[in-house]
C-alpha cells in the first residue's frame, strides 16, 4: 500500500532512490551534520595554520621527554620521600578545606537555584552567579587571593572554595530538581513551614547524592590544589615547581610520582565510600555507574 503510493508520488530530491525509501526511514539531521562538520573542519584548519608552534620540535619531543624522564627517575633520593609526602598531605588538606567551604555555600545556594523549590526569577539569578563562578578556573581566583593572604595555604583553600561553589551548586540543583514530588506534598499537607519542608521533604532525598558529589569534587580538587602549588601557595605543587625551576630533576621526578600515587590512592578510597553511600551495603565494587551518571550529567548538561 505504502509502496504503491510512494511510487506514484513525484520524485523527491533525496540521496536515496525512490525504490529504496519506503523501507528505509529518512536519515535524520543530515543538513545539521554536514554544516557542523564543515564548520568544525574549518576551525581546526584555521587553528593548525595559525598556531605559531615550532612544529619541527614536535619530532624531537619524544626524545626530549625521554631525556627528562631519565633525569627525573634516575636521581631520586629516598630521604626526600618523607618531606614530599608531607607536602602531598598539605595539598590534600587544601583540597579538603576548600571543598568543605564550597559545600557550605553551595548547598543553600542550590536550594535557591532549584525551580521546584523557589520561583523562576530567583532560580535564574542564582544560576547566573553559579555559572560565573564555574567559568573561572581556580588558579585565576587564586591570583586574586594571593595578595590578600600572601603565599599561604589559605589562599589556595579560598581559591578552591570559591572555584568549586559553581560546579557543586549546579550539580546540586540538578539533583534537587530530580527529586520525588510526593514527600514535599506530604510535608505541605501536614502544614510544614518552608524550613521544615526542606528538612523533611527535600534533604532526606538528596543527602546521599549530595555527599557523594562533595566527595567527588574533593577528588577533583586534589588535582586543583596540586596545580595551585605552582603559584607558590604551598602543597606539593610548590615543591615540584621549585625543583623544576632549579633543575633538581630527582626531586621533581619523586614529587611527580607522589602526586600520581597520592591522587590515585585518595581517588580509590573516596570512590569506595561514594559507592557505598549511593548504593548502600553489599553493592559490587565494580566502578562505572557513578562516573557514568556524572558522564550523563555532562552529556545532558544544560547551561541555563
Amino acid at each position: 500500500m505504502r509502496t504503491d503510493l510512494s511510487r506514484g508520488a513525484p520524485v523527491r530530491a533525496t540521496d536515496l532512490s525512490a525504490k529504496d525509501w519506503p523501507q528505509l526511514p529518512k536519515p535524520p539531521r543530515q543538513v545539521f551534520k554536514w554544516v557542523a562538520t564543515t564548520i568544525i573542519a574549518a576551525i581546526v584548519l584555521w587553528s593548525f595554520i595559525g598556531l605559531d608552534a615550532k612544529w619541527s620540535r614536535l619530532l624531537d619531543a619524544p626524545a626530549d621527554l625521554y631525556t627528562l624522564g631519565r633525569l627525573m627517575f634516575s636521581q631520586m633520593e629516598a630521604s626526600e620521600i618523607r618531606p614530599l609526602i608531607g607536602k602531598m598531605w598539605e595539598s590534600i588538606s587544601i583540597a579538603w578545606m576548600g571543598t568543605l567551604i564550597a559545600a557550605i555555600f553551595a548547598v543553600p545556594l542550590s536550594f535557591f537555584a532549584a525551580e521546584n523549590l523557589v520561583g523562576r526569577p530567583v532560580a535564574w539569578i542564582i544560576r547566573q552567579v553559579l555559572n560565573l563562578l564555574r567559568a573561572i578556573p581556580e588558579i585565576i581566583i587564586a591570583l586574586a587571593f594571593i595578595p590578600v593572604f600572601g603565599l599561604t595555604p589559605m589562599a589556595g583553600v579560598l581559591a578552591i572554595g570559591v572555584g568549586s561553589i559553581g560546579t557543586l551548586g549546579k550539580l546540586f540543583y540538578e539533583i534537587i530538581e530530580g527529586i520525588e514530588r510526593g514527600p514535599i506534598e506530604a510535608t505541605d499537607a501536614v502544614g510544614a513551614s518552608r524550613s521544615q519542608r526542606l528538612r523533611w521533604g527535600v534533604l532526606p532525598q538528596v543527602t546521599p547524592e549530595l555527599t557523594s558529589f562533595i566527595l567527588y569534587r574533593f577528588e577533583v580538587n586534589i588535582r586543583a590544589s596540586a596545580i595551585l602549588g605552582v603559584l607558590g601557595v604551598g602543597g606539593i605543587g610548590t615543591d615540584l615547581t621549585q625543583a623544576i625551576r632549579f633543575k633538581e630533576w630527582g626531586t621533581a621526578g619523586l614529587a611527580l610520582i607522589i602526586v600520581v600515587v597520592g591522587t590515585i590512592a585518595v581517588d580509590t578510597v573516596s570512590g569506595l565510600v561514594r559507592r557505598r553511600i549511593v548504593r548502600g551495603p553489599g553493592a559490587s565494587s565494580d566502578g562505572g555507574s557513578f562516573e557514568a551518571h556524572e558522564a550523563e550529567l555532562i552529556a545532558e548538561s544544560v547551561n541555563d
Partner: peptide, 23 residues
C-alpha cells in the same frame, strides 16, 4: 592523575617555552 598545569610544566621543561608545549 596528572593535571593540566603539571603537563604544561613537564613539557615546558622538556620541549621548551612556547605554544608547542601548551599543545
Amino acid at each position: 592523575a596528572i593535571p593540566d598545569l603539571l603537563w604544561a610544566l613537564i613539557f615546558v621543561s622538556a620541549v621548551g617555552i612556547g605554544a608547542l608545549s601548551g599543545l
